[in-house]
Design a protein around this nucleic acid. Structure first.
Length: 354
DNA sequence: CGTATTTGACCAGCGC
DNA sequence: GCGCTGGTCAAATACG
């Protein structure tokens, strides 16, 4: 599983998983079904994160601070990989990897193999199998193999789909506006951009993240009463998209999935938001470019601001989550010392201390 | 009136 | 081939 969870006290939950860079496959449940089940949002002391596929098969479980001793599955969280492998080709992975202090060993890091079906895939599948054999019934799906394919596809270069590049150019050249009838030559497989998903506890669906988005679609989600909304970045030539949906298992949680990387500055930063700039630009994760331009820093702005000044909590802002008492293990939660993130969490924890 | 949203139709991929 | 599903398009509509 490709997943990393970081939790900042209980102010907000920040979960990143990645499955992008490929065509959707049903064998990658995390691609579209990031079911988050936890009793910790709200301050319960035992954080666990479980991911289920459509058949409710428990694929993996682990905690951010220590693997739950009572859960044998936690002892082998599976072949989840690091951001470094996930984001290859777009960010400073070493920095990022250090920033998150990836808990997996190097052997667990699945490096996308550039020549298809290469050794990394075999390795990943092997690990997946090993994990499956140890963790009960094998999952019918393998997000790992999917990711390998994804990586290969990603390597092919950018999309040829019209809305990804220059739609007008494409239309003029091929005049394929006539969707029916004369079919144009077979489209190349559209590579998936890397994707990040964030689970945010919020009453509003579309969280302000500093960028400007235009909604271009909405679909009903299978097995969910909540629709999924599709947004595109409104900046010209920026192909970043995001999907927003609400977890039907926990309707208080909004799942925001970003795809692609912004090729421009965050408009919020350009607006001269000093507070935002102070928090956002100095490198949310160790270095200004550690995450990459697409990282929605501003998604966490309200929480960050409140961390720094909890007294200014604004109950009218649904993004403001009130700090709650940290359980001992959260207080002992050790983040790697990589700059601001550590500072923020520590300062926050210290403020909570009596 | 320009821009954003809504929404039904369409397309592609996949499983059967 | 057919049906299902996710993703996208684009005309219609709403909004400021």
């Amino acid at each position: 599983m490709h997943c990393q969870i970081i939790e900042f006290g209980f102010d907000f939950l920040f979960l990143i998983f990645l499955s992008g860079m490929s065509d959707r496959k049903n064998d990658d449940p995390f691609d579209y079904n990031p079911f988050y089940i936890s009793d910790n949002v709200g301050g319960v002391s035992h954080p666990e994160f479980r991911f289920f596929d459509d058949d409710s098969t428990n694929l993996s479980m682990f905690t951010h601070h220590q693997q739950a001793p009572h859960n044998p599955q936690a002892l082998n969280p599976g072949p989840y990989t690091s951001f470094a492998g996930i984001l290859r080709g777009s960010v400073e992975y070493n920095t990022l990897s250090r920033a998150f202090d990836m808990s997996c060993s190097s052997s667990e890091v699945i490096t996308p193999n550039l020549d298809e079906g290469g050794s990394s895939k075999k390795c990943a599948v092997a690990e997946s199998s090993a994990a499956a054999s140890e963790n009960g019934p094998p999952s019918p799906s393998s997000s790992v193999s999917s990711s390998s394919k994804e990586a290969a596809v990603e390597e092919d270069g950018h999309s040829s789909k019209k809305d990804e590049d220059d739609p007008k150019t494409e239309c003029n050249e091929n005049d394929d506006k006539s969707k029916k009838g004369n079919k144009p030559k077979k489209k190349e497989k559209r590579p998936r951009e890397p994707r990040f998903a964030f689970l945010t506890k919020s009453e509003i669906d579309h969280l302000e993240d500093g960028y400007r988005w235009r909604k271009y679609g909405q679909k009903a989600v299978k097995n969910s009463p909540y629709p999924r909304s599709y947004y595109r970045c409104t900046t010209q030539k920026c192909t970043v998209k995001k999907r927003v949906e609400r977890s039907f298992q926990d309707p208080s949680i909004v799942i925001t999935t970003y795809e692609g990387q912004h090729n421009h500055e965050c408009p919020a930063n350009l607006r001269g938001n000093a507070a935002a700039a102070a928090i956002l630009s100095p490198s949310f994760f160790a270095s200004p470019s550690a995450i990459g331009p697409s990282f929605p820093h501003n998604l966490f702005l309200p929480q960050l601001l409140q961390m720094r000044n909890p007294n200014r909590a604004d109950s009218s802002n649904p993004m403001m989550f009130y700090p709650q008492t940290l359980a001992p293990q959260q207080q002992q939660f050790q983040l790697p010392d990589h700059g601001l993130l550590h500072d923020m969490v520590n300062s926050f924890v210290q403020k909570k201390e009596p």
